[in-house]
Amino acid sequence: MMLSQLTPEIMYSASGIALFGIGLLGLIIVPHIFRKILAINVMGVGIFMLLVSSAKRANIDADPVPHAMVLTGIVVAVAGTALALFLVKKINDLAPSEKSQ
């Protein structure tokens, strides 16, 4: 790989993809359900980072459309996370026999 290809845009975008991968790995291998929900959020943040870093340009203003997509994505992520947490809480409330901590 040529060093000249490593523009800041590529480096930020690659970190976004790394976050996506870390989140995906966490979703699969971390046993705790709350951490799985957090892992999904980490994946989302990775994608948002990719979007935002691809919007920034050296000579012109940043492209607002990816920023708007990120804002919409954040709201949707909040909704999904809240629904997941709520379901976990209800499942815990209905836990069979022995009480969980």
């Binding site: 975008s13 993809i17 699969i28 203003d61 607002p64």
Partner: peptide, 30 residues
């Protein structure tokens, strides 16, 4: 799983590096 995801991410980063970014997106239109 870790190895598979690492391969996936490498592939994605490779795709990013090898593909030219669009020159301006929708910035001008907006």
């Amino acid at each position: 799983c870790g190895v598979t995801i690492l391969a996936l991410c490498t592939l994605l980063v490779g795709a990013l590096i090898s593909t030219q970014r669009h020159s301006e997106g929708l910035q001008q239109v907006v």
